[in-house]
């Protein structure tokens, strides 16, 4: 790993200032950042790594009235083990407990999980081998390359700092993003509160709408009846270590008037299966309805050369999870 200076931040504000001033990146669990630094994939290697773990009191898991509040630095293992989370948002505990591997879950954090950079192998290739659009470069190499793990719902358009238009077909592979979406979580940052539908985004070196220097502080999960009746399913090639190829969260309120369905690994941001939700809202699940909802969830998919299998998986996984909710 190339050298960098290291600063233990004592408050989010100082950390935020440092990152904002440029040349610095924040580190939480390090599960995403350290491999990226070792792989030397950033166009500009950071001069300073700012440690957030030195800031006291950011790893809490508490219940505040009807809201589950989780500090951005709570580890995935602590969330998975937490009786509070298990009782009030079981799919969050499940998702947190199935990310990566047991040892890595002990140090990686919820904040890092939702803010992690794309896993696209062109983006991640050593020594910034592919100066791709997600790094401000002109091209998405996956579109004409090997895109078996990429989006089936098209690319994301975004602008570089210089205002140039770019496209990227890498997917969001956060373990927790679909869950936080269907549970309508709120993301509290150093400057604002962002709703679940607005939080994730696509930009140069980011998978969220956070501005440079804006740091995630807390995630709030309203304990509505959605949290009680929900499912989480991950699909990966191995039973451990792997990022999910596709993951899926479904939640429904008690009168079944509203279904929330969100998929990861299929689009540049967590994908809300609106068509399927509309089809299901107000209905009880039958085998025919589940099948139709699966097809609806995949509606509009335009797979690339190597990833049509994801469409099949969307249909099957949505159908099967719904069938457990009859």
């Amino acid at each position: 790993m190339r050298p960098f200076n290291h600063i233990n931040a004592n408050s989010l504000d100082t950390a935020s200032e440092l990152v904002k001033s440029g040349g610095a990146v924040a580190i939480a669990g390090g599960g995403d950042l350290l491999p990226a630094l070792k792989d030397n994939i950033f166009p500009e290697y950071p001069k300073i790594v700012v440690n957030l773990k030195s800031i006291p009191g950011l790893d809490y898991i508490t219940l505040d009235g009807d809201t589950l509040k989780i500090g951005a630095l709570a580890t995935l293992a602590d969330i998975a083990r937490s009786p509070l989370v298990q009782a009030n948002a079981p799919i969050l505990a499940r998702a947190a407990g199935s990310a990566s591997s047991p040892s890595l879950r002990e140090t990686t954090t919820i904040g890092g999980n939702v803010c992690q950079l794309p896993r696209c192998w062109y983006f991640r290739k050593l020594n910034n081998r592919f100066d791709c659009s997600r790094k401000g470069g002109g091209q998405c190499f996956a579109i004409m390359g090997d895109n078996r793990y990429h989006s089936v719902f098209g690319g994301a358009g975004f602008n570089t700092d210089a205002g140039e238009k770019r496209t990227c077909i890498a997917v969001n592979q956060s373990e927790l993003a679909p869950v936080l979406n269907v549970l309508t979580a709120k993301f509290v940052t150093t400057g604002r509160v962002i709703g679940n539908l607005d939080f994730f985004g696509v930009g140069v070196l980011t998978t969220t709408v956070l501005n440079r220097g804006e740091l995630l502080k807390e995630i709030q999960i309203p304990l509505t009846d959605f949290a009680k009746n929900s499912r989480y399913k991950r699909f990966a090639f191995r039973k451990s270590i792997d990022f999910p190829v596709i993951n899926l969260a479904i939640a429904v309120n008690s009168d079944r008037s509203q279904y929330h369905i969100c998929l990861g690994g299929v689009a540049p941001t967590p994908y809300i299966a609106l068509k399927a939700e509309e089809l299901l809202n107000g209905k009880t699940i039958t085998p025919e309805l589940a099948e139709a909802a699966g097809i609806a969830a995949a509606e509009g998919a335009k797979p690339f050369e190597a990833n049509a299998y994801k469409v099949q998986l969307i249909k099957t996984l949505v159908k099967r999870e719904l069938l457990t909710m009859t």
């Binding site: 290291h6 233990n8 390090g30 350290l34 440690n51 030195s54 040892s103 890595l104 002990e106 140090t107």
Partner: peptide
């Protein structure tokens, strides 16, 4: 590279010693 930190398994390649 697994070690145990504060009683929990952790990966020493993925932790900065300074932290």
């Amino acid at each position: 590279c697994t070690v145990i930190i504060n009683g929990k398994p952790a990966l020493s390649c993925n932790l900065l010693a300074a932290e």
